[in-house]
Design a protein around this nucleic acid. Structure first.
Lengths: 231, 231
DNA sequence: AAATCAATATGATATATGTCATGATTTGAG
DNA sequence: CTCAAATCATGACATATATCATATTGATTT
């Protein structure tokens, strides 16, 4: 399942990770030589939690879900990832295992880059190392927010927030395709799928959103924001 | 409240951050010149969430709690921090604000080191940068574990895990001083203080632990482990 | 020793949320 | 197009957990 329209080189890849801009031509060429491109179909697993973390994966295009496999088969979706995103997981620098799984939602085009190469470039280029630290910090920061949200908000707040996440961070529109099932929406907000259904119904009755199984339209963003903030 | 027995220099500081071993003599001297030492009494705030993140703080001695201030005054204790720990928070590289608060539990001796100095050394020394990345990754990894624990385990499992955390990671003994109040234990495991009291009582009745308000002794570690894992 | 204050403890009750059962609807394969 | 499988939806019920009220204990001050 390799892509037809492959990227010819990192040097002219428009969707590459911003931090690659910090590299010299030679370094970029080193990355370019050591990358492998692949395409994934919806629902295919790109990264499997617990497996040896040998490669960082960059998303060139498509949408994927990042999730942890928890106890007794219960998943927790941490976030969605789109193009220009680096997926590595902190485990790479801790126990050489992927800390989370990643699965394609739409068709996904991705680059595999060996960690040895990444580490080499980190050691050689301080600017790149700093960029790497910023990226790690940003992800950690979001995780800190998420842990607060999941533990301190009630169901309505968590779901409202998830809907705003889709609108603001992923689709940049108040009307969007619902790419996750109710079950997955539950895995993202830490609630049962039945509760997701119920609360979406309530939001509809109050004319806050209009929802079908595969689409959502936010009608009253202000109300949704209040619900999201008040928990 | 400055300490009597100050550290004369980073060069001969036995409790320093392991990553400082990657520095050259000159770099270490740069850090040494730009550090400020302070001592905190129990319950004093060392880092305040949301305030400008100008310094990284290294704990030389003592015990502190790292916590997030959430909605409507509800705190979430992320972990305890002891000597040789770097406290900075991802916010330093994201929005220049501290992401979490830190408060002294025992008397705490700490070094303040300006982020400008840290950043300078990161740029100059790839080994140090890599060590920094490892430290960030390690913290992020633990946070990933914590988010799973908090969202997928029931109260008994979360409390059992907290007790094992004290025994294994902080005091390295199955008998230890309980440095947190029941209230704080609740902030750490995301439950009401009444629930903490109740479950500690149950653990005592089943002869799994012996507890007083200020001490805990683990009597049946195996059972506690099972409870912690089964959630 | 008396008095005050905070932390701990315990019981009664309320509520958020999960689980189970069942039916309707959509989707995908042949 | 048809049938099976998955997803969505909804009601009844179970339960984990928070909240409230009230003791009780332990420390600190007067």
């Amino acid at each position: 399942m390799y892509a037809e329209n492959k990227i010819t080189s990192c040097a002219n890849c428009a969707r590459c990770w911003t931090n690659f801009r910090n590299l010299t031509e030679e370094e970029l060429e080193l990355i370019n030589k050591n990358r492998y491109e692949a395409t994934f179909k919806p629902s295919e697993i790109i990264i499997k939690q617990g497996s040896p973390a040998s490669n960082a994966i960059f998303l060139i295009s498509g949408l994927a879900k990042v999730y942890m496999e928890g106890y007794s088969g219960k998943n927790l979706i941490l976030n969605l990832a789109e193009h220009s995103t680096l997926l590595a997981g902190p485990g790479a620098h801790v126990n050489a295992r992927y800390t989370y799984s990643v699965a394609a939602i739409t068709q996904v085009q991705a680059c595999f880059i060996n960690f040895d190469t990444i580490r080499k470039v980190i050691s050689a280029n301080p600017g790149f190392a700093s960029g790497f630290i910023e990226d790690l910090s940003d992800k950690s920061f979001r995780l800190h927010q998420k842990i607060l949200n999941l533990t301190q908000k009630k169901m309505h707040g968590r779901l409202a927030e998830a809907l705003l996440y889709f609108a603001d961070s992923i689709f940049r529109s108040d009307e969007f395709e619902m790419v996750l099932s109710r079950q997955e929406l539950g895995e993202m907000t830490n609630m049962a799928k039945e509760s997701v259904v119920r609360i979406i119904g309530e939001f509809e009755n109050e004319n806050i959103i209009h929802a079908t199984p595969r689409s959502v339209k936010i009608l009253d963003r202000d109300k949704l924001l209040v619900i999201s903030e008040k928990g």
